[in-house]
Structures are given as C-alpha cells and as structure tokens.
Amino acid sequence: MTGAVKRGAVLSTSGITMIFGGLTALSDVDFEVGRGSITALIGPNGAGKTTFFNCLTGIYRPSRGTMTFSPEEGREIQLRKLAPDRITYLGIARTFQNIRLFNNLTVLENVLIACHSRMRAGILGALLRDGKTVAEEKAMAEFSYRLLDRYGLAASANHLAKNLPYGAQRRLEIVRALATRPRLLLLDEPAAGLNIAETRELDELIRYIRDEEDLSVLLIEHDMSLVMSVSDRVFVLDYGVLIASGPPDEIRRDPKVVKAYLGED
C-alpha cells in the first residue's frame, strides 16, 4: 500500500488561501491527488476541510492560489475561476457532508439529473420530442437504472429519495455523483452516521469505485479506521494549514498529527 502509484497527479493545488472577512480558513495549502489513488484529507473539526472542497468545486473562490485539474495525462485545466457546474462537467463530482439529495424526486430522477451535462436536448428538443431526444432520454434512463442496479439501489428506483434509509441515501449520493462520470470523486465524510458494518461496506465500495470506474478518490473523513485502511495517501489539515502528508502508517505516528488531534500535552 505504501507509496501511491506515481502516475502524475489528477489534481494539484498550490498556495490555496481562503479568507472570510478577517478569518483565514485556509492558508497556503499545497495539495495533490495522485491519478488513480485514494487520497484522504483529515483534520480536527473546523480545520477547513469542507472549505477546501468548496474551493475545489467552485462554490467558494479562493482568495489566492492555483488549482490544476488534469482529467487525462497531458491535459491541464485551471479551476480557480470556473463555476461549479463547469467543474462538474470537466470531471470533478462530489457528495455533501449533510446529504443533499433531491428529496422529493425519485431515486432514478436523482441519477437522471446528474446525467444533465452529458445530454444535449434543449427547449426545442423537449417540446418537439424528436427522435434524437427520445433516444437520448431512453439511453439515459437505462444508464441510470443500470448504475443504480450495480450499486444495489435498483429496487428503490421509483421511491422518493427522502424515503430511503439513511445508509442508502449516502450510497445514492455517491451513485448520483458517479452518474456525472467524474475523473475525480470528492467524498465529504461518507461514513458519517453509518454503523460499523456499513462503514466496512463503504471501505469496499470506495475501492470498488476506484478500480471499476477508473477514477481517483479524495475523501474527507473522521473515521480513522476507514481512512487508514482505504487511503494511499493522507493529508492533515489543522486550522487551515497543511501540517502533514504521507502514507497512512507515517501519518499515524506523526507527532504533529497526534498533537493536533489530542491537543497540547
């Protein structure tokens, strides 16, 4: 597990600084996600992890710094000035810490919506319902269903998202993110609220996604057992500053990390 396969980075940031009013939430974060790796971002509450996600996905615009996304070898995109939908289109998908499904829509519709940027139909297509549009609709419905099927949610395809059990909602959020066909998947505390058995499944799920869907994963997580077991590389944030990075075993022993989590003493 040690030493992630160095096939270049799918994402790298340098000097990311985010200032809210007078509060510096992130300062000079240099960060990297290896292509095909599972990278974890950990840190105590309020360390700026979610803020970092929000910068990456265009919800916040960092005060300083550059973010480079490389969907394929040899292709580089600057993310800093892009809108969230554009970033999703380019291939970064995310889940949210407090699940944000489209609650009053069905599970299948949730996934269909995520296919948005891969579909072409516009107003005219919708009104005229020409052959191309119908074919596209059918193809996407089928794609969505199969995706749900693959992740064990097909039986609930016509249920409202809000009626799913909690664990299934978390899973659906991941499936929905996958439907945008990302190159990089950002998971914000995917294990929050899951029990031990579910967390173990999540561990397998994340690996499965990385291997089968051929993408890179970046996750924020508090569950250390999950982080240590699943990730190739771990970054530690504390008060907006990156204090350590390396393979899980190293991080576990790093005195700075221990101090950040346990406090002085």
């Binding site: 265009g58 969230p84 939908d85 554009r86 999703t88 499904l101 489209f102 829509l105 948005h116």
Partner: peptide, 13 residues
C-alpha cells in the same frame, strides 16, 4: 429542491 446540489450536478443555475 437544492440549488447547491443542483450546480454540483453540472447544471448551470
């Protein structure tokens, strides 16, 4: 349903 999640799905708000 949710503007933030909507954008995260690649929809131009």
């Amino acid at each position: 349903e949710d503007e933030v999640a909507c954008q995260a799905m690649g929809i131009n708000r």
